[in-house]
Deep mutational scan, measured.
Amino acid sequence: MNLTVNGKPSTVDGAESLNVTELLSALKVAQAEYVTVELNGEVLEREAFDATTVKDGDAVEFLY
């Protein structure tokens, strides 16, 4: 899956889609429990991480 992460191209191997929690784990995001996630310009509530799917071509920003 090809994404733009914090403005840079990134690839997650072996996945066509992941939820936000899985993406944080796959990318080994440090202190993931404290990060705010913006997906395609929309800031996500932490409670929505498990239910929100990240797909090929999406833009993700991790805000600390």
Rank of each mutant, 00 (worst) to 15 (best):
N19S: 15
A30W: 14
K55M: 08
A48H: 11
L63Q: 11
F49M: 04
D50V: 07
S17N: 09
F62N: 01
L39D: 00
F49D: 01
F62R: 01
T36C: 12
E61L: 12
L63M: 11
T4I: 13
V54K: 01
V60L: 12
V54M: 04
V20Y: 03
M1F: 13
D13C: 15
L27I: 04
A48T: 09
V5G: 01
F49G: 03
A59G: 06
L18M: 14
T21C: 11
V54H: 01
V29M: 07
K8Y: 10
Y64K: 06
T11A: 08
P9S: 08
Q31W: 15
A59S: 14
T52C: 06
Y64N: 08
V37E: 00
D56Q: 07
V60A: 02
Q31M: 14
E22I: 05
L44K: 03
V20P: 00
E61W: 15
L3A: 03
V5F: 05
K8P: 02
R46P: 08
N40V: 02
K55L: 06
A15I: 11
A26H: 11
G14H: 09
V20M: 10
K55F: 09
A15T: 10
N40T: 02
Y34M: 10
A26C: 12
L24Y: 00
V60C: 05
E22D: 08
N6P: 01
E22V: 05
E33Q: 12
A26E: 05
E33K: 09
S17P: 08
T36Q: 10
A26K: 12
T11Q: 11
T53S: 09
L24T: 00
V54R: 01
D58G: 01
V12T: 04
E45L: 13
S25V: 14
L23M: 05
V12Y: 08
S17H: 10
D13K: 14
E38Y: 15
K8S: 08
E22L: 08
V43Y: 07
T21W: 14
L63C: 14
D58H: 02
T11V: 12
V20A: 01
E33W: 13
T36V: 12
V54C: 04
A51I: 14
T53V: 13
P9Q: 08
A48W: 10
V54P: 01
T52M: 06
Q31G: 13
F49H: 10
V20C: 05
A30N: 10
E42Q: 13
T21S: 09
E16S: 14
E38C: 15
Y34D: 07
N2G: 06
T36D: 06
D58F: 04
S17V: 11
E42D: 07
A30V: 11
D13F: 15
E16A: 13
N2D: 05
D58N: 02
N19T: 15
K55H: 11
V43M: 10
E16L: 14
E38S: 15
D56K: 05
N6M: 05
V43F: 07
L44D: 00
A15N: 08
N40Q: 01
E38N: 13
G7E: 02
T53C: 14
N40Y: 02
T36M: 11
V54Q: 01
A26D: 01
D50K: 07
S10Q: 14
A51D: 10
L39Q: 01
A30M: 11
R46Y: 07
L27K: 00
V5E: 02
A32K: 10
S10D: 06
G14L: 08
A59I: 15
R46I: 05
G14A: 09
T53K: 11
S10C: 15
N40R: 02
L44P: 00
A15V: 14
L18T: 04
M1Y: 05
V43G: 05
D50N: 10
V54G: 01
E61N: 15
M1P: 02
P9G: 05
Q31R: 12
D50Q: 08
L18E: 00
A32W: 13
V54L: 10
Q31T: 08
L24K: 00
A51R: 14
E47W: 14
A32M: 11
L3W: 04
V43K: 11
D56R: 05
E16W: 15
S25G: 08
Y34T: 09
V37D: 00
P9H: 09
G41I: 04
E33V: 07
A32V: 12
L23C: 04
L27W: 05
G14V: 09
E47R: 10
T4R: 09
N2R: 15
K8M: 11
G7P: 02
L3Q: 01
L44Y: 05
N2A: 10
P9N: 07
V12E: 01
T53W: 15
G14E: 06
T11M: 10
S17L: 09
E38M: 15
Y34A: 07
T4P: 01
G57W: 03
G7W: 04
T53D: 07
G57L: 03
L24V: 04
K55E: 05
Y64F: 10
K28C: 14
P9R: 09
N6I: 01
T36H: 09
K8I: 12
S17K: 10
E33T: 08
D58E: 03
V5C: 06
N40G: 02
S17C: 11
T4E: 04
N6R: 02
N6E: 02
E16Y: 14
V54S: 02
Y34G: 07
A26N: 05
L18P: 03
T21L: 09
S10L: 15
V37Q: 00
G41V: 02
Y64S: 08
D50W: 08
T36Y: 09
V43A: 07
L44N: 00
V43R: 12
A32T: 11
S10P: 01
V20S: 02
K55Q: 09
S17M: 10
K55S: 07
D58K: 00
K55G: 06
E22Y: 06
K55V: 09
Y64E: 07
D56A: 09
E42S: 11
G7K: 05
E42Y: 11
L27N: 01
K8G: 05
L39V: 06
N6D: 05
L63F: 15
K55C: 08
L23D: 00
E61F: 13
E38Q: 15
S10M: 15
A26W: 15
Y64V: 09
E42H: 13
N6C: 12
S25H: 12
Y64H: 09
T36P: 01
D13L: 15
V35P: 03
N2C: 13
T21Q: 06
E47S: 13
T4K: 09
E42W: 10
T53H: 11
T4C: 14
A48R: 11
E61P: 00
L18K: 04
A30I: 11
A15L: 10
A26Q: 08
K28L: 07
T52D: 01
F62L: 12
E38R: 15
N2L: 11
F49S: 03
V54W: 02
S25L: 14
G7S: 05
G14M: 09
Y34Q: 08
R46F: 07
N19M: 06
